[in-house]
Amino acid sequence: MAIIQIKQLKKIYNSTQVPVHAINGIDLSIEEGEFTAIVGPSGSGKTTFLNLLGGLDNPTSGTITIGDEEITKLTPNQRIKFRLKNIGFIFQAYNLIPVLTAKENVEFIMELQKKSKTDRTKRSMELLKAVGIEEKANHFPRQLSGGQQQRIAVARALASRPKYILADEPTANLDSTSTENLLNIMENLNREENITFIFSTHDARVVKKARRVITIEDGKILSDERKN
């Protein structure tokens, strides 16, 4: 069952002399529980596509419907609320809050959701355990390796119990062992909790794990391949 419906999505940047068609008429459906990789060369529009999908940016035209909500019609504040409730983000540069510990970074999202202190503590420890980093709960990001930070980012993305996780090149800054560990964690979460993962990547190891691979070039879908 398609839970994300994208119709005739376009994003044109007019800030340069020549308008840039970053996304040029994408139609796409994504089903619940998919583990999807968006691939394509640099500048193909992967990140723009993820930003639009996450409601971080407005499309020039077209619609994105997630569940029952057409997010392209929401106001910026409504989109923030929608993201907080439904979408988890994992960024290439981890983007943890540097002044908070691993545990506090995970709890922060739940605090934004106004969860109780007990719930926050319980859930954050569960998540840190799930990503195998509970012993680093009280460490600050600067005290952790890239792989460890990205695992905390995964835990943070899961903290709000989102239905979808959008990951923008999550393994780009990781070594092969960390990449393998992270992919296993994400794959397990996908299988066990039926969370839909959509990530942009250049990484062949990620593509290998993905069950659906969508190739984008010049803002258009070049191929859409499902694996068994």
């Binding site: 996450g54 971080l56 504040n77 923030i80 609320k81 993201r83 907080l84 409730k85 988890g88 983000f89 960024f91 983007n95 809050i97 999202i109 934004l112 959701q113 943070r156 709000s160």
Partner: peptide, 8 residues
């Protein structure tokens, strides 16, 4: 990033 993850 904070706004992306849901900080209003």
């Amino acid at each position: 990033m904070l706004m992306a993850v849901g900080m209003n």
